[in-house]
Write a protein that binds this DNA or RNA. Structure first.
Lengths: 148, 148
DNA sequence: ATTTTTTAGTTGCAGATGCAACTAAAAAAA
DNA sequence: TTTTTTTAGTTGCATCTGCAACTAAAAAAT
């Protein structure tokens, strides 16, 4: 293998993907901080589905957010400490915790939503919509390739 | 904002990017393990540029690999423990460490190269080359958007 | 020539991550 | 009905990460 081929090879997806993810998270956290609010990216990414699904189980959240069980447990712990959500044991299946938003949680969600939107615009810049679509598409294909 | 718009919003880039990155790393590690070799993704991603650049400084490696200084320090520590690289203080500027591959390091590099190639093929599957190109392009645009 | 600033790298710390082992409860098998 | 297996969630541990504070050396300013 030539050095050139290798160079191209090494400067590729893995490093860029990790770095892009880090930068996006960092920017979001900065924007949240500038708005005087207090929520981490992880907490936010879980908060949305909770709002949306009304009272998902932790398993549901793990599947949607693509996180493992312990991670969800800890994120919900942290949200509960902040009184943004509560765990309610399912009436029928006592193994299941239903996670529901408190009023404070809903309020924070609505407050952060425009910040997320702003961050998203900063991330996208002037990248054409169709390229973003292909980008997402490739991502989901990669996920499918690796989980089958 | 409608629930539908929000759903789309929440199921988007951040989670997918992180998950794709994790899956790729995991697959690489599995493939390496199956080949009876022993190197982590992080170590590998640094090893390549060392091989390529002959004797980069740690700063060079950080810039190429998009990692911060402490991370590079620790990865080089781990590579040095395995006797895959050595640090050599720069003759002229004594602040700089030049990192160079040992023979064992070179050997491992050559051994892992085909495994990386295989992993890359698994990741790509049958995604068309032009989509991969756009994908990489969007990634670098995102990085540029966030670091300017 | 001396002091100040900048640069390269290291160390310590606090928080996140994934894995494996665990508990408790429900479902399936016997 | 009792036992076994599966499922949902938690805890512990070892590792990784990024940030801030630090050391040592070089460059710039005085």
């Amino acid at each position: 293998m030539s050095k050139e081929a290798s160079l191209k090879f090494h400067m590729n997806l893995g490093m860029m993907i990790r770095s892009a993810h880090n930068s996006m998270t960092e920017r979001f956290v900065q924007n949240v901080f500038k708005s005087g609010l207090d929520i981490s990216m992880d907490q936010w990414l879980v908060l949305g589905p909770i709002w949306q699904l009304e009272s998902p189980s932790q398993k549901d959240l793990g599947e949607i957010c693509l996180r493992d069980k312990p991670t969800i447990t800890r994120i919900i712990d942290s949200l509960e400490e902040k009184s943004l959500v509560v765990r309610v044991s399912d009436q029928i299946d006592h193994r299941i915790n239903r996670v529901i938003l408190t009023n404070a949680g809903k309020q924070l969600f609505y407050d952060v939503l425009p910040i997320m939107e702003k961050t998203r615009e900063e991330v996208r810049g002037d990248i054409p919509e169709e390229e973003i679509e292909i980008f997402k598409n490739v991502l989901s294909k990669i996920l499918k390739n690796l989980n089958s």
